[in-house]
């Protein structure tokens, strides 16, 4: 077993893991905020639609969702992946990644939505009323007063989800996406040696360590005030 070769392969896999991780967060954090507002909407149909979506997504396995999304074009609309990739102007390989990213982003936005909803609902009514009597608009109240307090409250649960996401990226292997875990599994089989799993574990460990430090830093940053 050539160590530098193995580490090189694993690093490439880790790059893919990072890509999925980043895209999921970039989409799911704002989408989660939008969904949390939808779940609190006074417009009943929207509220129940969003609540229903959150219920379905949180109640079924992420791996199932990944497979489901990848089957939708063909079983739902009779479109071959080859044709869809051609239509979108991407390689089949990238199409697989798009399926995975869609499922991940949707899944995580639902979890974030529930975290944000809890955060928003924990802000006292008095904060909104203080904004109102000071003549602020609804969006000014939300963005200038409420949002920051919500962010402070949800940092800890969000960091939990983010760390889980790092490990969940391994589920992308179900579609053959060459993330860190998939690559490690391949190497273990190829060399009949467990070491690649240990190296992969080290990658996950170090990355999550960095994330923990980052969130710790952010939590200290917003702890300059108390309620």
């Amino acid at each position: 077993m050539n160590l530098s070769l193995v580490l090189g392969e694993l690093t490439k896999g880790f790059g893919k893991t990072l890509l999925l991780f980043a895209i999921t967060l970039i989409v799911a954090l704002p989408l989660g905020l939008i969904l949390s507002l939808g779940a609190r909407s006074k417009f009943k149909p929207l509220k129940y639609l969003v609540k229903g979506l959150i219920w379905v997504v949180r109640s079924t396995p992420l791996m199932l969702q990944v497979l489901f999304v990848s089957f939708v074009p063909f079983y739902g609309f009779g479109i071959l992946n080859k044709d869809l990739a051609g239509f979108l102007g991407v390689e089949i390989y990238s199409l697989t990644f798009i399926f995975i990213a869609v499922a991940f982003a949707l899944n995580y936005s639902c979890y974030f939505a529930e975290i944000f909803r809890g955060g928003i609902e924990s802000i006292s009514k008095g904060q909104y009323e203080a904004g109102k009597v000071l003549g602020m608009t609804k969006s000014q109240i939300f963005f200038k007063i409420i949002l920051f307090q919500v962010i402070k409250k949800v940092l800890a649960p969000v960091s939990n989800e983010v760390i889980t996401l790092v490990k969940d990226t391994a589920l992308a292997s179900v579609l053959g996406f060459e993330d860190l875990f998939t690559v490690a599994k391949g190497l273990v089989n190829q060399y009949v040696n467990l070491a690649p799993f240990l190296y992969a574990a080290l990658f996950y460990l170090v990355f999550n360590g960095v994330l923990s430090l980052l969130f710790g830093y952010l939590e200290r940053k917003v702890s300059y005030y108390k309620e």
Partner: peptide, 23 residues
Amino acid sequence: DAELREKRLNFGLVFQSFNLFPQ
């Protein structure tokens, strides 16, 4: 909403629980 805000501004209100913005 705009009319309501304008009308509200005729009055100031001090709350029992202050409701200062903590951040």
